[in-house]
């Protein structure tokens, strides 16, 4: 199977992704401390999604997978996005 081919990912990529993850975590903490109301919910959610995507993309090699797998992963993500969106219709307008 093609997906079992071995791709060489440089250490540099791994380290920069790790650095990005750490930086994003720091931002999450700072935003939480700033108490900015609704933004302090939205920003961490966006950041968490970005972090999860980075892990999937690089660490879990999604980048090198077939299109079908990428598409399949998109389905639950879109579902989750819609669900969160509808929930926020309540929380933001309450």
């Amino acid at each position: 199977m093609e997906s079992e081919q071995h791709f060489v990912v440089t250490n540099k990529t791994f380290i920069s992704v790790w650095a990005a993850l750490v930086a994003l975590t720091v931002i999450t903490v700072l935003v939480a401390q700033a108490h900015k109301g609704n933004t302090s919910v939205l920003v961490p959610l966006v950041i968490a999604t970005t972090k999860a995507s980075l892990v999937l993309w690089y660490f879990m090699h999604l980048k090198y997978e077939k299109k079908l797998f990428k598409l399949m992963l998109l389905v639950p993500i879109i579902t989750l996005l819609v669900i969160l969106g509808l929930t926020f219709l309540d929380i933001w307008f309450r």
Partner: peptide, 22 residues
């Protein structure tokens, strides 16, 4: 069917916007 759960909560204190859409 994923998008209608709010109709169980019309009297729970949800926002009006959400209630109309659900």
């Amino acid at each position: 069917g994923y998008l209608v759960w709010g109709h169980h909560m019309f009297t729970s204190g949800m926002s009006d916007t959400a209630r109309v859409i659900f």
